[in-house]
Design a protein around this nucleic acid. Sequence first.
DNA 1: GTGACATATAAGTCTGACTTTTGCCCTCGG
DNA 2: CCGAGGGCAAAAGTCAGACTTATATGTCAC
Lengths: 233, 233
Amino acid sequence: MSTPGRGLHGHVLDTLGPAITAGEYPPGSVLRTDELAQRFEVSRSVMREAVRVLESMHLVESRRRVGVTVRPKAEWNVYDPQVIRWRLAGADRPRQLRSLTVLRSAVEPVAAGLAAKHATAEQCAELTECALGMVANSRGHKLEGYLIHDVAFHRAVLTASGNEMFARLGDVVAEVLAGRTHHEVMFEDPDPAAVTLHVQVAEAVRAGDAVRAEQLTREITVGALQELDILAP
Amino acid sequence: MSTPGRGLHGHVLDTLGPAITAGEYPPGSVLRTDELAQRFEVSRSVMREAVRVLESMHLVESRRRVGVTVRPKAEWNVYDPQVIRWRLAGADRPRQLRSLTVLRSAVEPVAAGLAAKHATAEQCAELTECALGMVANSRGHKLEGYLIHDVAFHRAVLTASGNEMFARLGDVVAEVLAGRTHHEVMFEDPDPAAVTLHVQVAEAVRAGDAVRAEQLTREITVGALQELDILAP
DNA sequence: GTGACATATAAGTCTGACTTTTGCCCTCGG
DNA sequence: CCGAGGGCAAAAGTCAGACTTATATGTCAC
């Protein structure tokens, strides 16, 4: 799903990014470009490009005569998909997963409500198709198939909302759902009630019932939050 | 509020970033680093660093033998504060403002609810202080003073929610509120009802009444949305 | 102690040469 | 006429070295 580092500077980022987001270098730590270039066996030009990218993510700050200092966590661009991926792959994965799920619980219901108002016929069709796909894969340990349709469903809702900010959260939701299936314990088939809720959301959007779509989606996200509490109370 | 471009590459970004986000180069447009370097009168190294940053924002994609191609709008990292600033300064400012306000309407009520549960005594104190500051500046054309406390209030709520993703939206809210005061028409004093709502939110958070804090904040954001509809129906 | 000044340090910049990938075109064979 | 294969060239990618600039810090005079 993620894009592996293109070029040398990308390879450097694939190592440095996760290290920084994992807290391996505490805030205030000072790195020197030349030293990093030697460590990664790349030229200074390449290392400078990598540092610029980290700087644009607000992970570090580069100052003359000082070096490259790691910024406090609170200043990181935590919405950057790359940063999200790095953090999800690292140690504070559970914390990150919780933050993202709370974000989902705020955004998705509103998005569903908007989708009920703005969705085109094609979008409604895709939505019901996804929901049907979820039903078809809800029994018999077809977890991968279920995941694909689940992701597609939530992506479709966010897109159909007509709000670009919501639409761009599709990747985030995809990461969260994939994480639940792959990393967390999920041996059994998905909760039938959740599957039903998705079908009902598709119906509500098709019917243009914004309030109902929002309320049903809220129930879905509440379920997702409870799931987290059960796994790590 | 924004950070002016540090160094030469920053200066290049200050020009190229707004140009791209403004749609001056339509998706699929091809730029060449050498040509850009000449145009901005910087070395290729500097231009390459700038391109890397634009690439990390998913605004462009650099490929060998092709050049630097502008990506479609739908792929941009629209949560990057820098991108948000560029777009707010550009032509589709109204559209962007609307998207962000809808996002606020989804996030802030939930954040307020969480704040009611998690806020510390200090955070409650700061919240009421901000609300009082808003009241003090709500009459007599003290718009700047009002804005400062308004921003501080919403920032405090988002921070007190305890969710880092919410907290990082403080800058976004600040931009939106500042935009309303500075760019949109706002000659008169703020709506007294809105001021009252802020005070009541502070009270609800202090009292730990999550439902009430969420509901009141929802009223605030509904007001913000209506304000937009009045300005551009 | 305080201010001005000197110094060392690390980032910032530029240049030029070289390497590597890859889109494109041309040819050749079916 | 068309498709496969090979060669060409364009543009990004990489590197090394020299130079510039800002600035933190230490020093010295007052």
